[in-house]
Design a binder for these strands. Structure first.
Length: 216
DNA sequence: GTTGAGCGTT
């Protein structure tokens, strides 16, 4: 019983999740199993891996059945040296579901949030406070900028990946420009994304200025 | 052969 996740992840609601950071890139679940298993019964261990390379991202998730064992593992394994690197063990959380997760485990269940409790709306206060700082505009603006930047980098990266050397190719075109004309038909096939020709260069520019209605 | 803040299912 060394392979976890092969048979599918166990019940999350019945297990505590621990996040192990700063682990080696070559560290596997089998390596962490005997280490975490000593402090409690590990129900599942999962290590996210890159879809491109297939290597581990450097962190893993370990699930315990009881919080006592999980807490002990965090206190014992946190800061411990594994595979030559000092790992960081702490309780994990499921992103947006973190609200329902406490100490890596779901503490509250929200089956039907339909009931609108006007008397109980503590979250609304946070929203108001967030808006008061006017950070939403700045935050979104910056996020968009970063997103555009990442997209550009990804596109450029793929293009370069297609060619061995962009400089060489560019210089080659300068000298042997007729070479490209020699095979115009093949030039089409070399296009990685032929559909991009008909794609507008500024999609967000078309919907931004005209359709913008801040006050409704 | 490399890297190092983070939050998860092929």
């Amino acid at each position: 019983m060394s392979h976890f996740g092969r048979s599918g992840p166990p019940a999350i609601r019945d297990s505590y999740s621990l996040l192990v950071l700063n682990v080696s890139f070559r560290t596997t679940a089998d390596d962490l199993f005997p280490i975490f298993e000593r402090y409690g019964e590990v129900v599942d261990i999962y290590i996210p891996r890159d879809r491109r390379t297939g290597d581990s991202r450097g962190f893993a998730f370990v699930r315990y059945m009881f919080e006592d064992e999980a807490q002990k593992a965090v206190d014992r394994l946190d800061g411990r040296t594994v595979d030559g690197r000092d790992i960081t063990v702490q309780f994990a959380k499921y992103g947006p579901n973190a609200e329902r997760i406490h100490k890596g485990r779901i503490v509250e269940e929200i089956p039907k949030p339909r009931g609108r409790s006007r008397s109980h709306s503590p979250r609304r206060r946070y929203r108001d406070d967030y808006r008061d700082r006017d950070y939403r505009r700045r935050s979104r603006s910056r996020s968009v900028e970063r997103y555009e930047h990442e997209r550009y980098q990804e596109r450029d990266y793929r293009r370069r990946s297609h060619s061995i050397s962009p400089d060489y190719d560019r210089r080659h075109v300068r000298n042997g420009r007729s070479s490209a004309r020699r095979s115009p038909s093949h030039s089409r096939s070399y296009s990685p994304t032929p559909s991009r020709e008909g794609t507008p260069r500024r999609p967000r520019d078309d919907r931004a200025p005209r359709s913008q209605n801040p006050s409704t």
